[in-house]
């Protein structure tokens, strides 16, 4: 199958632009973090807002009153950061779509493309969470790892656009790899949230600019609750594909083992979150373990350990 060289070039350009835009956005987020207000003041505003939107104590129900107030300069920088993140996300998505069009296959057939899809999912999750939780200024913490991953992906892991080998020529490539990389990308966010939670809840006052630990905890939980079933589906799709491609649905290949381990870790996290005495820091630690195994699984297993999954275009 011929590869469209023009589209490939455009794909590379949009990829590069996306990274550049993310760098700018990170700068803006960091400015907001550095010059913005501390969390204590934020909390007052949030609770005040809740009182307006909540149930009134008077006889009749009053709809919430929205007060338009002036954005401070750091806040404006943060909002610009979000706008740029959206732009970067669109550019990155365009780069993947162009690659898919150029090669006439699902654009996640090697480590470079896989990493791009995964970070795309991470950034999208982040944008969804920003709408629900007052955590905008943390954008830098999410984007910096994304930029590093994209940089490594675009340089040392870069793979020329090409068709994939026979073992990957299956519609399960579309299903399994997309579900796995999207769920793994989403799972990066609760990992970061739990790390920040541990920082914040450990030494109160020392990380004044981080959001409330409760917010971080809920953010970690809700994104895990979204990603865990997705990850489960991804693993099951992988097993179905393995049955067709390798002759068995489960064979303790290193990648399968690591997926099993992170699945168990996230299951433990969800259980701990619902068990008295394990909520809070202990649960957060378990989530961090899951995060570490996920990252280990994404990169170390593919790049270092030889197994059936190591055809990521780096051999």
């Amino acid at each position: 199958m011929p590869v469209n060289a023009t589209l490939t070039t455009y794909s590379d350009w949009t990829y590069g632009s996306a990274v550049a835009v993310y760098v700018l956005a990170t700068g803006l987020y960091l400015c907001e973090m550095a010059f913005g207000r501390t969390e204590a003041r934020d909390r007052e505003l949030v609770t005040a807002g809740a009182r307006i939107a909540g149930s009134g104590t008077s006889g009749t129900w009053t709809p919430g009153l929205v007060v338009q107030r002036e954005w401070s300069r750091p806040e404006r920088l943060g909002r610009m950061g979000v706008a740029l993140t959206v732009l970067g996300l669109l550019l990155q998505a365009a780069s993947l779509v162009l690659r898919g069009l150029a090669t006439q296959r699902a654009p996640w057939g090697n480590m470079y493309e896989y990493g791009s899809l995964l970070t795309l999912a991470g950034v999208a999750t982040w944008l969804v969470l920003v709408r629900k939780f007052p955590v905008r200024k943390l954008g830098g913490f999410v984007l910096i790892p994304v930029i590093i991953l994209l940089f490594v992906g675009g340089t040392s892991l870069y793979t020329d656009a090409a068709p994939v080998q026979p073992a990957l020529q299956s519609y399960w490539l579309v299903v399994h790899v997309s579900v796995i990389s999207v769920s793994s990308g989403v799972l990066l966010v609760p990992g970061v949230a739990s790390v920040l939670y541990l920082l914040k809840s450990n030494k109160r006052g020392r990380f004044a600019k981080l959001p409330d630990p409760d917010v971080l905890d809920r953010m970690a939980y809700r994104s895990t609750v979204f990603a865990f079933p997705l990850f489960t589906i991804g693993v099951i799709c992988g097993a179905i594909w393995a049955e067709a491609a390798w002759g068995r649905f489960w064979g303790w290949d290193p990648k399968e083992t690591a997926a099993f381990v992170s699945w168990v870790a996230y299951a433990a996290y969800l259980h701990a979150r619902a068990t008295a005495g394990w909520r809070g820091r202990r649960a957060a630690w378990i989530n961090v373990v899951g995060f570490v195994v996920t990252v280990f699984n994404l990169f170390f297993i593919n790049l270092v350990i030889a197994g059936l999954h190591s055809y990521a275009g780096v051999g």
Partner: peptide, 13 residues
């Protein structure tokens, strides 16, 4: 559960 995860790990390494 934690032991299971830990015990499975050497199989990958």
């Amino acid at each position: 559960l934690f032991l299971l995860a830990l015990g499975a790990m050497p199989g990958a390494l």
